[in-house]
Nucleic acid binder design. Structure first.
Lengths: 204, 204
DNA sequence: GTCTATAGCATGATAGAC
DNA sequence: GTCTATCATGCTATAGAC
């Protein structure tokens, strides 16, 4: 805490502080993320903060950027290759829910940060960037899978993907309120069944 | 601001402060809601705060309670009586989106408050209460409409309602990120079309 | 009930020794 | 680069005059 630190690159220090910030906000919520709490958690003196980040806003930006990247990477790391449309949709939505279920507090913290980003003009670009690249990834994913299995959609894939994302977000958000696994599972099954009607098998 | 106030009942004062708190958080976000900002906005001296509310947490509770009630009331005030399933679902989801679209900053503020409630143990019951009563209302609504029009569902109505809510929340959340009216409209249409396949006309 | 004044503390940021 | 000490400000909450 107060023991003198050996030299580290600013990059490493930043990483260390971003880790700490994430830990604090996971444990105690966004308002608890103060420069002091973060440095303390990182085992660094308070003064360390301001030669790694110019301001608290800069820290938030770094946290958001890294975590959104990570969470998207995790969401798409899951390979689902069922040939059945309903099964594929089910698995996709469930994969996303599982991420949240594994670390609910971290997920909650991330939504708090995104809330902040949606309002703070300085972070607005991040909220948009997250939204856009997520849609982009999902669309690419759906497109690849569809053509691999000879499935086509009765509407542009982007539009279909947007609905997938909306449903997935909605189910996840509900689970965060009620933590009801069974209800979530039923919702996913039901939604997948309905959404599958948007697909049609290619008569190739 | 500093001019002496005539006497008002504590109830009225509370109402006044809740209004002010909502205004502040709509304009400047949840973190800007300080006891000072609220009383200033209400045109009251700072000291007024603590004989209306025991603490800041009490204020948050009052705001959440009132606003959740209002927003649910508004959502269900819209009478939609189309006999076509797809049209009914479309209208229902759109009604909810319209509420958010009318006052996006207020909606954003409310989600921030709900985020807070999901984490703060003292407010946890409110988050649950909102979730439960919302589901309850939607279910009752769907049930009434279905029996009036001779429609039945291939799954328990509660489950269907849960999916409706999830889709609605998801679409709304997406819109809050991209403010893309056209995309939202398409998502609603697509989702409604898919969800309508869960219904079946009674062969009465 | 109403309001002023202030206690008591935490905050983000900086100045400057090492 | 590293860290201590401190500044200026803002916060919630309360004590106590009116």
């Amino acid at each position: 805490m107060t023991t003198p630190q050996e030299h580290r690159s600013v990059e490493e220090r930043r990483e260390q502080l971003v880790d700490a910030a994430l830990a604090v906000m996971t444990d105690d919520g966004l308002p608890a993320v103060t420069t002091r709490a973060v440095t303390a958690r990182a085992g660094l003196p308070h003064g360390a903060f301001h030669y790694c980040f110019g301001s608290k806003g800069d820290l938030f930006r770094a946290v958001l950027e890294r975590e959104l990247r990570r969470s998207m990477a995790a969401a798409f790391a899951v390979e689902i290759d069922s040939p059945a449309v309903t099964a594929k949709i089910t698995a996709g939505i469930r994969a996303n829910l599982d991420l949240v279920r594994a670390r609910p507090d971290a997920a909650l913290a991330l939504t708090e940060l995104i809330s902040l980003a949606r309002r703070d003009p300085a972070l607005h670009d991040l909220a948009r960037w997250e939204h856009d690249s997520y849609l982009h990834e999902v669309t690419a994913n759906v497109e690849a899978w569809s053509s691999a299995h000879g499935i086509s959609w009765r509407r542009p894939v982007v539009q279909v993907s947007r609905v997938f994302i909306a449903v997935s977000e909605g189910v996840t958000s509900s689970w965060l309120s009620d933590r009801d696994d069974q209800a979530a599972e039923q919702s996913i099954a039901l939604a997948a069944e309905a959404l599958a009607t948007l697909a049609e098998e290619d008569a190739a």
